[in-house]
Write a protein that binds this DNA or RNA. Sequence first.
DNA 1: GTGAAAGCGCTAACAG
DNA 2: CTGTTAGCGCTTTCAC
Lengths: 341, 341
Amino acid sequence: MKPKKYADIIDVANQAGVSPATVSRCFNHPDKVRPDTRRRIKTAVESTGYIRNRAAQAIHGRRSGTVGLIVPTLDNAIFSNLIQAFSEQLNASGFTMLVATHGYDLDREYQLLRSLLEHRVEGIGLIGLDHKEETYSLIERRETPSVAMWNYRPDTRISCVGADNYEAGRMIARHILDIGHKRVALVFPDIEGNDRAAYRLKGVQDVFDEQKIDVPKNWHLHTPYSIKHARRVCTPLLSSEDKPTAIIAGNDVIAQGVIYAAQALGFKVPNRISVAGIGDFSGSAHLLPSLTTIRLRSNKVGQTAGMILDKLINGDQENHIERVAIGVELMQRQSTAHPFT
Amino acid sequence: MKPKKYADIIDVANQAGVSPATVSRCFNHPDKVRPDTRRRIKTAVESTGYIRNRAAQAIHGRRSGTVGLIVPTLDNAIFSNLIQAFSEQLNASGFTMLVATHGYDLDREYQLLRSLLEHRVEGIGLIGLDHKEETYSLIERRETPSVAMWNYRPDTRISCVGADNYEAGRMIARHILDIGHKRVALVFPDIEGNDRAAYRLKGVQDVFDEQKIDVPKNWHLHTPYSIKHARRVCTPLLSSEDKPTAIIAGNDVIAQGVIYAAQALGFKVPNRISVAGIGDFSGSAHLLPSLTTIRLRSNKVGQTAGMILDKLINGDQENHIERVAIGVELMQRQSTAHPFT
DNA sequence: GTGAAAGCGCTAACAG
DNA sequence: CTGTTAGCGCTTTCAC
């Protein structure tokens, strides 16, 4: 009494009057099966409602057809573009994407990597370059094709594709100084476990140092990536007598919060205060005022990462490391201008 | 000459001086293994770098440890919250999430469902209730635990959890009429393959019909979910002589675009024109003006959906359908007011 | 072009 | 508590 629940390859084979082996071949090497037979099998598949079992395939050391993606969070405009592009690219190559989020906890990231590896993903996408030693060594030990997105560095342990966030920081800092600001505040997220933010900040600070521009400690604000928090954290700064003429935000969402904080206090942007972001998120060009920012082309990053991973998985080059820098670009818009003074 | 690449359960067993079965037990029923043995196995696992093969487990008709999620797109603030909450909830129950996107193409959705089923996901999360007959029947045929998110209806074929989008539409329409508007324009996304938008729009229109408020055809605008497009599509309407006193947007992103369109033309919101959204996205409360909208609590939806799916998968109730309505709530903020007139 | 048979890595049932 | 045994559903030689 075992009313086998779902059709398996044997049911299909019986139904089609062929052997299981032929059915298998029909899926994996269709050209090695006579068209006529193929058609009979196809009919049998439909009538039995058979659905292949990838797990059973994967067990033969064959491909699982999945790639893993580990991101800090999905709940964030920052990664949406990136992930979408990555996913689409991989989908086009026939992969299904396993996604896991670690909430900026790198220990958890390692655990998730293990879990994904248990599912025998054929490749791994990661965000950023800041990972635990265990994470790197596990990837290396298993020679899992991997690509780190969002941050380019010339000296990475695994393939990477991304914008040079350090350069992005430098670029926006230069812009702000170029147009004449000397009194600048910084609003950045916590750089703990977030190397993208860390590099951006470093870029900004290096330019400031070079130009001998000093940012008072209390002009260096921290906030999570949200309009709400950014707005809240900036309001006291902007309400004070001694305020900056420009603010550089760690990304566009924060910048938007900063702009609202200023506008709510009655300060026109950019007349009274300039605000710059980093990222050029969708929508940033259409804010009021439109936001001066650094374009990072996240969809290009995601797409390229997908292509690289595909190549790493299907290519013959073992242990190859590929690094692609996606150019950054200053998008000068309405939110920055010469200081009023 | 077959230098077996990675450790398997047998290697671990040898290393630990036990049988493979014991190693297996150690993973699946640790309490049935002596602590001492357990420790030896643990050491062996570490020294061999063994990583379990879920595929091989899954083949035993056991759990694959994955659930599938099929969404229209990831590139969208709309789903970010939802997905994040869903994913976290399932993660907590030990599942890894397989994600696929169909780009609002329901044929593709069906294909993705098949693909996910090939991976033997234990459950499926879908967005909305508008799916192909094939999609529904495949789910039913395989009795795959499934939950549709984002839209509640009392008469669904599969479990669902979401806001009653129809009610959300009614609620915002009532609000706009209550505060005295009679000349109202609608800016909605295309309702093709998007039942959430369709129900919202229906709700709005039913209230208008009941109150004998007529919306001229050319005041019914369509736009994708983006600030840019919303802003563009509204500008001509707002530039015309004969313009509405209020605009209801299909969601908050569109509403934001509408507000910018108005502000760019020099019209104060809400003084010259009221704008309302639907969704209450993160940030909507902190725009300038803050946005009147309908709170849909997407994270609650995602979390509940995750819980339901877990229950459906692990519970004993076969073929049970659970439906949860997440209450909608009017968030009256600054962007709407009595018409000036 | 197709079938028979062996076996992938693991787990469950049953002994011991 | 642990080992032995028999497969799970499929793919892949190797014959035919």
